[in-house]
């Protein structure tokens, strides 16, 4: 059996009668940086959220390092794993959100330390030292004791990335992390992600920044109407799209506008 970091098989997800993921298959190796692109409503974010069980899914399997996420099949019956087990599995992935979602009543350092102390059970001093290391890595050590409300959007997003990465996840999930930022703040966040990618961090990025996806990823997945419409290396995908749908999408995207 090949050693996949992430393996998604026949993933189905519905909201009531509306099926948003209609059988997604995808694998990812250690160190891969995969960008997921596609128009709004194509299922990109939903797929990402299924990977860390922020969304339940009705069919298919998701495995990280061969370990099935979220559900188990016992006696032929598929059932949700226990909450404690799901919480442990969620920590296998780190996630950065579009709206940062920093805890507003905690300083930047405390935001990073919370998971280290509560989940990893580290002492306050150990957690602080790791938090400072990662805040330094995202260029915000000097702001460690600032509260989210005292930071710019770009700084908040960098703290959110530090918070996720400090947990030492196997895989980082980025969900449109620059969409809520003013244009002049986008670059500082992209630079952080790029440097993490260069360090070998495995990443799945949902993004509308086509130029960035082109530069940073070793593979691109184009989602279309709940399925993978096309996938491949960025050069092929962006310069020689096979499907008409991707070709159209790229024309209307920031990549086509350059």
């Amino acid at each position: 059996m090949p050693n996949h970091l992430l393996e998604i098989r026949d993933l189905h997800k519905s909201y009531g009668d509306v099926e948003v993921l209609k059988g997604v298959d995808c694998t990812m190796a250690q160190g891969d940086v995969i960008s997921i692109i596609g128009s709004s409503g194509s299922g990109k974010t939903t797929m990402l959220r299924c990977i860390n069980m922020l969304e339940e899914f009705q069919g298919g399997t998701i495995s990280i390092d061969g370990e099935e996420i979220g559900y188990e099949t016992l006696g032929g019956q598929r059932r949700r794993k226990k909450e404690k087990e799901i919480a442990r599995q969620r920590a296998l992935t780190g996630m950065a959100f579009q709206q940062f979602n920093l805890f507003p009543h905690m300083s930047a350092a405390r935001n990073v330390m919370l998971g280290l102390m509560k989940v990893k059970k580290l002492s306050k001093d150990e957690a602080r030292s790791i938090a400072e290391k990662w805040l330094d890595r995202v260029g915000l050590l000097a702001r460690a004791d600032h509260f989210p409300g005292q930071l710019s959007g770009g700084q908040q997003q960098r703290v959110a990335i530090a918070r996720a990465i400090a947990m030492n996840p196997r895989l980082m999930l980025f969900d449109e992390v620059t969409s809520a930022l003013d244009p002049e703040l986008v670059n500082e966040v992209l630079q952080v992600i790029k440097s993490l990618a260069q360090d070998g961090m495995s990443m799945l990025l949902v993004t509308h920044e086509m130029r960035f996806a082109y530069e940073v990823s070793n593979r691109v997945i184009f989602m279309n109407q709940g399925r993978i419409g096309e996938e491949g290396n960025p050069r092929e995908m962006f310069h020689k799209p096979k499907s008409e749908r991707l070709s159209e999408f790229l024309k209307t995207s920031s990549f086509g506008e350059r």
Binding site: N52, L54, G94, R163, A164
Partner: peptide, 8 residues
């Protein structure tokens, strides 16, 4: 969700 995502 951010809390869930870090494994709380």
């Amino acid at each position: 969700e951010a809390g869930l995502a870090i494994g709380l």
